[in-house]
Amino acid sequence: MRNGPARRAALAAAAALSLLTVCAQAQAVRDTVAESLSQRLFPALDALGHDPAALRALRDRPEVAAMLRARSDRRAACAADLGCLAQAMIWSDGEAGILAAAVPGKGMDDGPAAQAGREIAGINTIVRTYGVGQVPAYPGIDGAGTIDPQEARARLQAAAWLAQTPRANSVQALDPSLDFALALLDAADRRDAIGDVPLSGGLNAPAFRRARGMDWSRYRYSALVVTGVGPEVEGMPLSPYSKYHLRLAAQRYAAGDAPFLILTGGHAHPRATPFAEAEEMRRALIERYGVPAETLVIEPHARHTTTNLRNAARLLVALGAPLDKATLILCNPDQSAMIESPDFVKRNNRELGYQPGAIGPRVSPTELEFRPSALSLRVDPRDPLDP
């Protein structure tokens, strides 16, 4: 029995405890990738890491302290079982409710408790998808893909260690699950949420400079919203559908009805493609159609039509466009009809929890008016690649 499974597990647990003791005594250092992901995905919880007094006050609340002790005991009982540890990182509904109700801050439009609830649900989504192996909502483009068991174990082990290794401005003193989730995303190289941020810089800088002092009343529409349709062929930068959308966009832009074109589409198809649809559409509009760069605004994160519109609304707010002014969605007739359908309303309610704006009226088979909603500003890490 000296070399049996129980003894090996005990030795592994002791070694892990020794490592974590050393780590706990180490200097907390900044990790710019983890910090950026934390701020982008979990703004309400991340703010606690920058306010030690608020973090201590939250942790010391009796109901929160009791709940956190129970979570700690659950993790400790897993010893060296990494699958058990990943499951123990997941927040139950009761635990999430206690923490969300206690988190201070302004939150989004629906208050700090609702925002904290979304963020805790986001942690659960990441742990389930990238740690436990649950199939994501869109398995063709999301998740870690197929990996061998040795790599899966390495990712879990590294996440477990990193969750306990001090990081400056983190909420590890509250609970390690947030940093565990960040480490799992990083291990899978799914840092999509912090690509091309801030959106007012980089390729968008010329358009944002032009937007300063813009007289929006001169135009019928505040922007033309051009949706991408991802290719299914490896190595293809633009799908045939997107090339059709670009011809529509160039024609409409030439009419002078809008000062900007918002090109929306991220790294969607096939999984983990190096091409962002928005960037490729921008390149084609400049090179093929001579559209000025200062009129083009890219939105390189959306992977679905729901988030095409939500993220376009966010960019319109950032540009300073009036939300009561219509935009014009340009896309192929099939996608345009889908956006106008009752099923799309249901899908928005199911996936976003609200409508990103008001659809209609229809201008042509390929053109729909769209008035964006400020509800689109809510951050929701339940989609950790595009919160």
Score class of each variant (00 low, 15 high):
135 V>S: 06
105 G>I: 03
66 A>R: 11
162 L>D: 06
54 A>K: 04
6 A>R: 05
236 M>P: 01
197 V>W: 09
358 A>K: 15
3 N>T: 09
47 A>L: 07
156 L>G: 02
359 I>C: 08
117 G>E: 04
163 A>C: 13
377 L>K: 02
149 P>S: 14
365 P>Y: 11
33 V>A: 07
117 G>L: 06
146 T>G: 00
353 G>Q: 11
304 H>D: 05
120 I>E: 03
298 I>T: 12
123 I>Q: 01
7 R>T: 10
271 R>T: 02
83 G>T: 05
58 L>S: 02
319 L>C: 06
6 A>N: 01
261 L>G: 00
151 E>K: 13
367 E>W: 03
225 V>M: 07
348 N>P: 05
377 L>W: 04
74 R>P: 05
101 A>S: 14
317 V>F: 09
45 L>Q: 05
23 C>F: 14
349 N>Q: 14
283 R>T: 07
368 L>T: 09
99 L>P: 01
144 A>Q: 09
357 G>D: 07
291 V>E: 03
308 N>I: 07
281 M>E: 00
300 P>C: 11
365 P>S: 10
241 Y>W: 12
255 A>V: 08
384 P>K: 06
363 V>Y: 04
99 L>R: 02
115 Q>P: 06
33 V>G: 00
99 L>I: 09
58 L>M: 05
292 P>K: 12
141 I>N: 02
153 R>E: 14
28 A>V: 11
121 A>E: 10
151 E>L: 15
169 N>F: 14
192 D>I: 04
50 H>K: 12
238 L>F: 09
237 P>E: 07
41 L>I: 04
283 R>L: 09
276 A>C: 07
25 Q>G: 14
163 A>Q: 10
168 A>S: 08
307 T>Q: 03
179 D>Y: 05
120 I>L: 15
7 R>F: 12
218 R>H: 09
282 R>T: 04
379 V>P: 00
103 V>G: 02
299 E>K: 11
145 G>I: 10
59 R>K: 15
90 I>H: 01
246 L>T: 03
49 G>Y: 02
314 R>Y: 00
173 A>Q: 13
184 L>K: 00
